[in-house]
């Protein structure tokens, strides 16, 4: 019921053991050479060239291959040749599990099909952003995963409004946020009305009534929803080669007339209408 990769799916379904998977990952680590290692093996560059490029990476935000070209150690044609060779010889986790004897060929295809069916529900639908961002695709995926989790985790019907850029975040009953760091710098926030907070609490706690629950528990359920969305966004990001760390969620103190957006940040707001008059807003506060 979450964004996963194939090896994790197999362990979670108890189809292979964690030791089988670790053996397969170790085999991948030995077999799948890095770009610099392939270039060295092909005799195109020296280990000193690789070291010089690695040192240059400290001050330049470029991939190793692009740097080797920029520094004149490789031509673009040579780089493309290396990348093609890297792709063509890549040992995928399913094949690695076959090689360590954890799966048979018949089982591999059967489980691969089941895995694809499981993950199809997380294929992204398009979401339009009002402004361009370096990580536009990731923010579109973030909005889309939020919508999907409202359906899957909360079981709520809803309709979405167009994403708008705001200079002030509208006040609401509760505002919860989670900081994202690593290759991206942003804060993911969800604001909810009082009624919606209780609806979320009923869904997360799987209880018919939450009238007796403390404020702490009610707030915690919204924080957990934020945690689930952001964790799954981080999983999608890792599939895209983007490193994203997340911090524990927090309740954000609001001002009566809203929360002003700092000049150096962009606030993208996604209104979500649930039921009669219940308002949820997803906000991405992006620093670029």
């Amino acid at each position: 019921m979450a964004v996963k990769f194939f090896g994790q799916y197999l362990v979670e379904q108890c189809i292979v053991t964690s030791n089988d998977l670790l053996d397969a990952i170790n085999l991948q680590d030995k077999h799948n050479l890095k770009l610099g290692e392939i270039a060295l093996a092909m005799g195109l560059i020296s280990s000193a060239d690789v070291q010089r490029a690695h040192n240059a990476q400290i001050s330049k935000d470029l991939k190793l291959g692009d740097l080797l070209v920029e520094m004149g150690f490789l031509t673009i044609v040579q780089l493309e040749d290396i990348i093609t060779r890297q792709k063509n010889t890549h040992l995928y986790i399913g094949e690695a599990l076959l090689q360590v004897g954890a799966l048979s060929q018949d089982n591999l295809q059967k489980h691969l099909d089941a895995f694809k069916a499981d993950q199809d529900q997380y294929l992204s639908d398009s979401v339009e952003l009002p402004v361009a961002s370096v990580n536009s695709l990731l923010w579109e995926i973030t909005a889309d995963l939020t919508y999907k989790m409202i359906t899957r985790v909360l079981g709520l019907p809803f309709r979405t409004g167009a994403c708008i850029q705001k200079s002030v975040i509208s006040p609401n009953f509760l505002l919860v946020g989670m900081d994202m760091s690593g290759d991206v710098e942003a804060r993911y926030m969800i604001s909810v009305s009082e009624g919606l907070q209780k609806t979320i609490a009923r869904a997360i706690l799987r209880e018919e009534s939450v009238e007796e629950e403390s404020t702490e528990v009610l707030e915690d359920t919204v924080m957990e929803f934020v945690n689930i969305v952001c964790g799954n966004v981080a999983a999608k990001a890792s599939q895209m080669g983007v490193i994203m760390d997340i911090n524990p969620p927090v309740v954000i103190h609001q001002l009566l007339d809203g929360l002003p957006v700092p000049e150096e940040q962009t606030a993208l707001c996604f209104p979500i209408y649930i039921g009669d008059g219940e308002i949820m807003e997803m906000i991405l506060l992006i620093t670029e």
Partner: peptide, 15 residues
């Protein structure tokens, strides 16, 4: 964890 789908975290946990 919500981070189960992040390959590096998953592998690190198993290791």
């Amino acid at each position: 964890t919500s981070l189960g789908g992040v390959g590096d975290k998953f592998t690190e946990a198993l290791k």
